[in-house]
Design a protein around this nucleic acid. Structure first.
Length: 794
RNA sequence: GCCGUGGUGGCGGAAUUGGUAUACGCGCUGCGUUCAGGACGCAGUUCCAGCAAUGGAUUGAGAGUUCAAAUCUCUCCCACGGCACCA
C-alpha cells in the first residue's frame, strides 16, 4: 500500500499550481468576482508566526471554495515592510534595512508557499518599494492639497534614554516600548492628518458595511460621537465669554462653577486679570510637565486652583459662580472648558467635595448629599423648567440661554510624523521664500537616501536630517535654497491603501486603473486582527473615503465585510514571544506533519474568533485524520452508495460552516464522514470524491493527489463545489427520546410517518418506560415530532 | 469605572427557534500488530455508588419561568481583550 508521503506530495502540487497559474485573477471575466483579503504581514526577522497561518488559512479556504463555486477570485499577498524592528536591527548590525527586508520577505515567501496558500503571487507588493511608495506619497500630496494634511506644534513622546521621539503606539503604559524608561513630553512640529473631518461619516457609514458587531462597537467607541450643546457663560464686568460643551444642558441650573483646562487660551496672558495669576501659572506649568504616568498614577485625586477676582455668570439664573483651572478638564475635547454640576457628575462631585463648593440638586432621583446622581429625572430648582423631564429640558434650556446643539467626537487628528529613517519620506520641502512647497508629482517618489547610519539624533530629529546632501535642495517653485522635510510617515501609511494597489500593482501612471477598480472594489471579505480595529482599519477607511470624494475610487467604503481571528497563544495561555522562548516555528511542523495537517489543526483547534493556546499534540489528531482519508483512497471502490444521508448532511454542514467561519465544526463533520467511510469495506467512488472536494479547501495537497489517483486530470480545486439535496438529508427512520417527567428513560427507533398515538403506545410498552409509569396516572403527554415524547405523571 | 468576549469532562472544544449535555479531537486505560518503538490498529473513557443491571449528580455560583434550561429571566462571582477624568 502506498504511504502518505506529505513531503513529496506537497512539493509536487505546489509546483503544479504555480506552473498552471491556477490562482491568477483575471482583470476581466464573465464570472462574478470575489476579492478576499488578509492583512499583509510585516516581514519580521522571526519568520512566519502560527497566527499568520490561522488567518491566511481561513481566507484561503473561503477563496478556494469561491473558485470551486465559479468565481473569479483575487487573493493577493504583499509586505508591509516599513517599521521599527527592521530599523532597530539595522542600527544594531549595520546591515541596511533594504537588505534586511529582502532577507525577511524571502523567508516569509518561502514559508507561505510551503503552506500551499492560493495567493496570486503575480501581484505581490512591497510598501518599501519606491514604485509603491511613490503612490503613498502621491496620496499624501492630495491630502495636503485638500487641506487634510497640516503641520502643527504638538507635544510628542520623548524617550530620554534612547533620545528618540516615539509614536503613541510605541508607548506602553507611559514608558518607552524598547527600554522601559518613562516617556517625557516635548514640543515639536508634526504633520497631522485631519481624520476628524471624516469622524461623522466614519461613524455613520458603519451602517453600510457588514463588519462583526464587536468591530463596529469598538470603532464607534473610539470615534466617540456625543451629542450635546455649547453654552456661553459671561464673565462679570468683562467682554470675554467662556464657552462650554455639555451633554446635560438639563442640569444647567445646577452648574455651580466653571473649570478651564490648564491649556485654555483665556489663561495664556492673564487677559482676564486674575489676581492670583502667579499661582495659576505655576499650576499650569506643573500640569503640563506631568508625564503620562504621573497623570494616571494620581488617579481620581483632583487638583485645581481658583481664579481670584474673576467670576462667571450662569446664563440660566444669572448667578455668579467661581472659575477654576484644573487638569481633570482636557484641553482638546469639547471647548476645553466645562460647566461643573457637582450634584450630577461624579468628577465634579469629587472636586466640589474637596474644595467645599456648592452642590445644588436639579434632577430628582438620587441622594446628592451622598453621591452624584448621574441619571435622568424630573427637574427641580430650575425655575420655570421645574417638573420637566431631562430630555425635554435639555432642549428647552439650551434654547432658553441661546446655546447651540452640537456634536463632539473623541477621535483626534492623526499624528503623521515619525522621526525615523525606515519610512516613506514626506514629499515636502521648506523654502526660505515660499515656505512649505510640495514636491511636484513628476518628481515622485522622493526616495530614501542610502546611508550608513540610522541612529536618531540627539535633537529628536529624524536621522535623515543629518544627511545634508539629501536635505538641501532647490525650491521647486522659485529655485532658491530649500530643505527637505526629514520626518517620515508612520507605518500605517502604506497599509492605508494597499488593497487598491493589488488591483493594478504594476501601474506606473496611476495608483490603479479606474476600470480595474470599478471591477474589483470593494474588497468582499477582509479578515484581520482585532488589534487593528481602531488604527489600520479606521485609517484605511478614512483614506478610502477621501479618495472617493476625489472621484478616484468607485465606492465610499473599502471593505464590504470584515471579520477577525482570535490570537494564538503559547502553551499555557501566555503570549508567544521571542524573549520567552515559546515561539512555535511552522517550518518544523510542516516538515514533521505536513502543511495540510498544520492547516487543519489551526482550523480545528477552537472557534476561529477566539484566542486559543497552542498545543502541538493536537497535530497528531489531524495527521491521523488525513492518514485515514489516505487509507480510504487506497480501498477498492463499489457502486453501492451507503452513506447518502450522512453525505448530504455533511455537504450542508461544511458549506454553511465555512461561510460563518466555523471551521472547527466543519472539520468535525468531515471527520465523522471519514470515520464512517473508514468502517466500510468498499467505498463508492462518487461518495469519496465528494469528501475530497469538501476537504480540498482545508487540505489542498492530499486531496489533489487522491483526486488525480482517481483518474482526474484537472485540479480538484477547479472542480465544482458539491450541493446538498434537501430530500436526502432526512433519514428514513428516526430515534425518539422517551422521557418521564422530563427525565430521559429510553429511546425508540421508529419510522418517520408513525402517528403520535402509535408512538405513545409503543413507548409505554417499553419495559424501561413501563416501570416508571406503574401506579401513576399520566396527566399530560408532550410530543415533539421526530424528537421526543414526554410522559408527565403524578 | 465603562464597553466587549467568555466560563461545559483530565485537556481543546460540540450542542442556542428550550427537547438524549459532553459530538469531534487530544490524553489516558486495556488488547492487538511489531525484534522494538509509536507520529500503528481495535475497544473503552463526564463524575459518584455498584461485579453488573441500574440509580444518582453534573454545563462558574445562587434563585426563577417551564412538562423540559448549558440555552430564557434576575442577582452575583471569575478570566481575557479594549477604552479610560471625553463633561
Amino acid at each position: 500500500m502506498k504511504q502518505y508521503d506529505h513531503k513529496k506530495i506537497e512539493k509536487k502540487w505546489q509546483k503544479f499550481w504555480e506552473k498552471e497559474k491556477l490562482w491568477q485573477a483575471k482583470d476581466k471575466d464573465k464570472k462574478p468576482k470575489f476579492y478576499g483579503l488578509i492583512e499583509f504581514p510585516y516581514p519580521s526577522g522571526e519568520g512566519l508566526h502560527v497566527g499568520h497561518i490561522r488567518s491566511n488559512t481561513a481566507m484561503d479556504i473561503i477563496c478556494r471554495k469561491r473558485w470551486m463555486e465559479g468565481f473569479n477570485v483575487l487573493y493577493p499577498i504583499g509586505w508591509d515592510a516599513f517599521g521599527l524592528p527592521t530599523e532597530n536591527y539595522a542600527i544594531k548590525t549595520g546591515i541596511h534595512p533594504i537588505k534586511v527586508t529582502k532577507q525577511n520577505t524571502d523567508t516569509f515567501r518561502r514559508q507561505l508557499k510551503e503552506l500551499g496558500f492560493s495567493f496570486d503571487w503575480s501581484r505581490e507588493i512591497n510598501t518599501t518599494d519606491p514604485k509603491y511608495y511613490k503612490w503613498t506619497q502621491w496620496i499624501f500630496l492630495q491630502l495636503y492639497k485638500h487641506g487634510l494634511a497640516y503641520k502643527k506644534k504638538m507635544p510628542i513622546n520623548w524617550c530620554p534614554k534612547d533620545k528618540i521621539g516615539l509614536a503613541n503606539e510605541e508607548v506602553v503604559d507611559g514608558c518607552c516600548e524598547r527600554c522601559g524608561t518613562p516617556v517625557e513630553k516635548r514640543e515639536k512640529e508634526q504633520w497631522m492628518l485631519a481624520i476628524t473631518k471624516y469622524a461623522d461619516r466614519l461613524d455613520k457609514d458603519l451602517d453600510l458595511v457588514d463588519f462583526l458587531e464587536k468591530i463596529k462597537i469598538q470603532q464607534r467607541n473610539w470615534i466617540g460621537k456625543s451629542e450635546g450643546a455649547e453654552i456661553e457663560f459671561g464673565i462679570k464686568n468683562q467682554e470675554s465669554k467662556i464657552k462650554v460643551f455639555t451633554t446635560r444642558a438639563d442640569t444647567l441650573f445646577g452648574a455651580t462653577y466653571l473649570v478651564l483646562a490648564p491649556e485654555h487660551k483665556l489663561l495664556m496672558n492673564n487677559e482676564l486679570g486674575i489676581r492670583n495669576y502667579g499661582e495659576v501659572k505655576k499650576y499650569i506649568e506643573t500640569a503640563q510637565n506631568k508625564t503620562e504616568i504621573e497623570r494616571t498614577a494620581e488617579g481620581k485625586e483632583k487638583t485645581g486652583v481658583k481664579l481670584d477676582g474673576v467670576t462667571a455668570i450662569n446664563p440660566a439664573n444669572n448667578e455668579e459662580i467661581p472659575i477654576f483651572v484644573a487638569d481633570y478638564v482636557l484641553p482638546d475635547y469639547g471647548t476645553g472648558a466645562i460647566m461643573a454640576v457637582p450634584a450630577h457628575d461624579e468628577r465634579d462631585f469629587a472636586f466640589a467635595k474637596k474644595y467645599n463648593l456648592l452642590i445644588k440638586e436639579v434632577i430628582t432621583g438620587g441622594n446628592v448629599s451622598e453621591t452624584a446622581y448621574i441619571g435622568e429625572g424630573k427637574l427641580l430648582n430650575s425655575g420655570k423648567f421645574d417638573g420637566m423631564e431631562s430630555k425635554e429640558a435639555a432642549k428647552a434650556i439650551t434654547e432658553f440661554v441661546g446655546g447651540k446643539i452640537t456634536t463632539k467626537f473623541k477621535l483626534r487628528d492623526w499624528i503623521f510624523s515619525r522621526q525615523h529613517y525606515w519610512g516613506e519620506p514626506i514629499p515636502v520641502v521648506f523654502c526660505e521664500k515660499c515656505g512649505v512647497v510640495t514636491v511636484p508629482e513628476k518628481d515622485l517618489p522622493v526616495k530614501l537616501p542610502m546611508v550608513e547610519k540610522y541612529q536618531p539624533t540627539d535633537t529628536g530629529e529624524s536621522p535623515l536630517a543629518a544627511i545634508t546632501k539629501w536635505v538641501n535642495v532647490k525650491c521647486p517653485k522659485c529655485g532658491g535654497p530649500a530643505k527637505r522635510e526629514t520626518d517620515t510617515m508612520p507605518n500605517w501609511a502604506g497599509s492605508s491603501w494597499y488593497y487598491l494597489r493589488y488591483i493594478d500593482p504594476k501601474n506606473s501612471k496611476e495608483f490603479a486603473d479606474r476600470k480595474k477598480l470599478d471591477y474589483w472594489t470593494p474588497v468582499d471579505w477582509y479578515n484581520g486582527g482585532m488589534e487593528h480595529t481602531t488604527l489600520h482599519l479606521l485609517y484605511s477607511r478614512f483614506w478610502h473615503k477621501f479618495l472617493f470624494d476625489l472621484g478616484l475610487v468607485p465606492t465610499s467604503e473599502p471593505y464590504k465585510k470584515r471579520t477577525s481571528h482570535g490570537l494564538i497563544l503559547a502553551e499555557g495561555g501566555v503570549k508567544m514571544s521571542k524573549s520567552k522562548g515559546n515561539v512555535i516555528n511552522p517550518d518544523d511542523l510542516v516538515k514533521r506533519f505536513g502543511a495540510d495537517a498544520l492547516r487543519i489543526y489551526e482550523m480545528f483547534m477552537g472557534p476561529f474568533d477566539q484566542a486559543i493556546a497552542w498545543n502541538t499534540d493536537g497535530l497528531v489528531g489531524t495527521r491521523r485524520f488525513l492518514e485515514k482519508v489516505w487509507r480510504i483512497g487506497q480501498k477498492p471502490t463499489t457502486e453501492n452508495r451507503q452513506l447518502i444521508t450522512l453525505l448530504h448532511q455533511t455537504i450542508k454542514k461544511v458549506t454553511e460552516d465555512i461561510e460563518t467561519m466555523r471551521f472547527n465544526t466543519a472539520i468535525s463533520a468531515l471527520m465523522i464522514l471519514t470515520n464512517e467511510m473508514d468502517k466500510l469495506e468498499k467505498v463508492a467512488k462518487e461518495d469519496f470524491e465528494i469528501l475530497l472536494r469538501l476537504l480540498a479547501p482545508f487540505a489542498p495537497h492530499i486531496t489533489e493527489e487522491l483526486w488525480h489517483e482517481l483518474g482526474h486530470r484537472d485540479s480538484i480545486h477547479l472542480a465544482i463545489w458539491p450541493k446538498h439535496d434537501v430530500d436526502k438529508i432526512q433519514a428514513s427512520s428516526v430515534k425518539i427520546v422517551i422521557q418521564v417527567n422530563g427525565k430521559t428513560r429510553g429511546t425508540l427507533e421508529i419510522g418517520r410517518n408513525l402517528t403520535q398515538t402509535e408512538i405513545e403506545k409503543q413507548a409505554a410498552d417499553l419495559p424501561e418506560i413501563a416501570k416508571w409509569l406503574v401506579g401513576k396516572s399520566v396527566k399530560k403527554i408532550i410530543f415533539v415530532p421526530t424528537r421526543l415524547l414526554n410522559f408527565v405523571v403524578a
